[in-house]
Simulated assay, not measured.
Amino acid sequence: MTKVRLCLKLAAGCLLLLWLAVAAGSAGQWQRDYHPSPKAQGGKYRIAYCETEAFANYAATLYNLVQGLAKLGWVTGVEDLPYTPGQKDTQAMWEWLAAHDTGPYIEFVANGYYTYQADPGIRIAVRQAILSRLNHTSDIDVMLAMGTWPGQDLATDAHHVPTLIFSTSNAVRSGIVASDIDSGRDHIWAHMDANRYRRQLEVFHDIFGFKRLGIVYEDTVMGRSVAALEDVNAVAQERGFEVVWRHVDDKTRQGDPKLYVRQALAAHRELAAEVDAMYLTQYSHRSSAMLPELLQPFYDQKIPVFAQQWGNENVNGALLSVSTTDFSGIGRFGAEVIVRTLQGEKPRSLPQVFERTPLIVLNLKVAAQIGWTVPVDIILSADDVYR
C-alpha cells in the first residue's frame, strides 16, 4: 500500500471518529429537529449575501447551501436553480432565488446581493453600505459572507446581525474568528477546515518526495492568504524541502488582461530551471484556456504540477490534485448552521469545524507527458481520473 493511500485511509478514519464524537453529543446534530417554523414576527426570514469576487468555490458553496436548506424542508422549488459545476457566477443564482417563490420560510433578498469584485475601492464602499443597512434598516435576519474580505469586514461589533462566513483560506489567521471552536463574537460564525492545504502538500510530498517546490503568488496579504503560504512554508520546514517563489502583480490585470499571462509565463520558465515540483495556487481570473501555455515549461522539463484548486486545473494541465470537492457536505453542514441560527441559537455557540473528505484527482495524459508511470495503488485510490 502506498503512503498516499495510507494517508487517505487514516484521514478517513479520523473523520469517522470525529463524526462519532459529534453524534454522541446531544444525540448528534443529524438527529436535531430542523423542522421549518415560521418567523415569530410574521413574514419570511430574509437572507443577504456578500462575496469577495466571482469564484467557483463561492458558487459551489452557495448552490449547495440552498440544496441543503431544501433537504431540511426550509426552501422548495429550487431544483432548477441555474448552476453548472465550475461556474464562478453567483449573481445569476441569487437573482433566480430572489425572483422565484422558494416557500413560506426564507426570502433571498433581491437587493441583498453584494460583491467586492476583488477591488479595494469597491470593498470600502460596499462594506459601508452593508454595515449601514445592518445597523439602521434592520431588514436582514442572516448575512452570508463568502471569502476573506467580507469575513474580515463583517466580523465586527459594528453590527449584531448573525453573519455566517464561508470559503476563507483560514478564518483564524485572517483575524475573522478567535479560534477553530470559538468565533469570539456571539453573532459571528465561520466554517473552519484549517488543515486542508497541509493535507494536499503532505500527500504530494509522500508521492514524489520533491526537494524544491515552486510557487507563484501575488505578494499581498490577500495573495499570500489565497496561496496558503503559511501552510506551504510550515510543511516545507517539517518535511525538509525548499520553497522557491516568484511573484505576479494581480492588480495590473485591470489595465492589461494579458499581463498576468506574460508575468506568470516568465515566472514559470524561471522556476522550471530551478525546481523539481510545482504547486499551482488559486487565481480566480486565470482561465482554463491559459493553462496549457502556462504549464508547458514544467512539462518540457518533466516536472509534476500539483493543483491547489480542483476541476479545470486538472482537466487542462495539472498532473494531480488532492481536492476538497465535497461541497454537498459543507452545503448540508452550513444549511444546518443557518437553520439553527434562524431558530434562535447564537452563531458563536455552533460548531465551526467541518473537514471535507480529500479526493485524489489525476490526469493520466499529463503523467504520460512527463514520463511518470503511475503506481497502480494511486490509480485505484484516485476518485477522478482524466485520460
Rank of each mutant, 00 (worst) to 15 (best):
Q237T: 14
R239K: 15
Y116M: 02
F208G: 02
M290H: 07
S132M: 12
D276R: 09
A155E: 06
Q117R: 11
G175H: 03
Q352D: 03
M143G: 02
S132N: 13
V109G: 00
S284E: 15
V226I: 15
V226C: 05
G329D: 05
S323K: 07
V353I: 15
L20N: 01
G147Y: 09
L295E: 06
L62Q: 08
I360N: 08
G86S: 04
R185W: 10
L144E: 11
L10M: 11
F204S: 06
Y260M: 12
A129E: 09
L62K: 07
D157G: 11
P257G: 04
N363P: 00
V235D: 08
I130Y: 03
A11C: 09
L69D: 06
D157Q: 15
G344F: 02
P351Q: 03
K302F: 00
F208S: 04
P257A: 09
P347H: 07
A228E: 12
E202P: 00
G147K: 11
R32I: 00
D276L: 09
L72I: 01
K251A: 15
G68Q: 10
H159W: 15
A264W: 15
W96Y: 14
A23D: 13
G184V: 10
V161M: 15
K71L: 14
R332E: 13
N316A: 10
S26Q: 12
R239Q: 11
T156A: 05
T252E: 14
A48P: 01
D139T: 04
H285S: 13
E95V: 14
P120N: 07
L229A: 03
